[in-house]
Amino acid sequence: MLYKTITKSDFEHLIDFILEQNEIIAPRKVGEKPDGTPIHQFLPIEAFSEMDLDYSKTEYSAKTYFLPFRENLSTWSFGDGGWKQDIQYRQKPRAIIGLHACDIHALLKLDKVMLKGPFPSPYYKARRENTVIIGMDHEPCGSGFCASLGTDILTHGFDLFLTDIGDRYFVAVDSDRGFRILSQVPLAEVTDEDRRRYVRARAAISEKQTIKVHTRNLPTLLDLTFNSAVWEKWGSKCLSCGACAMVCPTCYCYGVKERVCMDLASASKVKQLHSCNLVDFAEVAGGHNFRPTREHRLKYRYYHQHRGFAEAYDEPMCVGCNRCGDTCLAGINPPDVIADLEQENP
């Protein structure tokens, strides 16, 4: 890996340079909670000043810039007793600024499903390849438990990754594309002092990671507690509203629907992000539902995140951001659910 340092004012110039010809998505403050806590979201920006890089966690993950909530997979035009299929993968390049380590880990996990397995997704690949990732270190977000999942630190998955070392940014460069962008501003070689400051900055962040969730034996635990009353307890609270999956940086389940134009001359095959908590997730033609209760469905969200995915890719799908826990009106959150499973002693 190549490391450089840049001044903070040069970083601002860099953003302006990128903005001249490209779209930038960055954390923006969109409002405040009644208690005054700011609410941030990843949104397009027009100027450096619209960004708030000192955010702790965005309300929604940046997943939607890679797996949109709704996406047209094919367009059909009908005529002559048949149809024509049109598929478009093209995407405009853009940059996402300020992603934290957990959100970049989420993309790496999605890559495993969308790019590295059988049937790679061209729709995802088009977005992934055309997005420059400029990540950033930040202090722990409060409710996240990324340290327990090892997603608080990062070695790849970005073009540039910045750590604040006082008056300068310490920049890890992981792609030629990133290097060419960074080279637009004056770069300094990393000095011994920079190195020391970087290590201290990282250590200070790690020290503040206080939330611990026991996830190491979770795949087995989830199997052993499959019929536990813990699921009844949390399942009875679940609203089956799917909010957790919508804000999650890794949940990728979807449903497909046909949307027909009123004149019946054309139609589109539309993909819409779904959630395993929604009532019809596992319902088959004829009406049988393989997961008829909230308890079944909630359990499977955890089972997929922490066991199914782990069996397939040797790591959990969850990155520990706790956005699902933050957004859940019923207060269902992974640290509490997992703690309950731990105490269950099956």
Binding site: M114, Y252, C253, Y254, G255, F281, A282, Y303, H304, G308
Partner: peptide
């Protein structure tokens, strides 16, 4: 194609 997750059974 292993993407939509709707046919998920256990871990597969």
């Amino acid at each position: 194609m292993g993407k939509c997750c709707r046919c998920n059974v256990g871990s597969t």
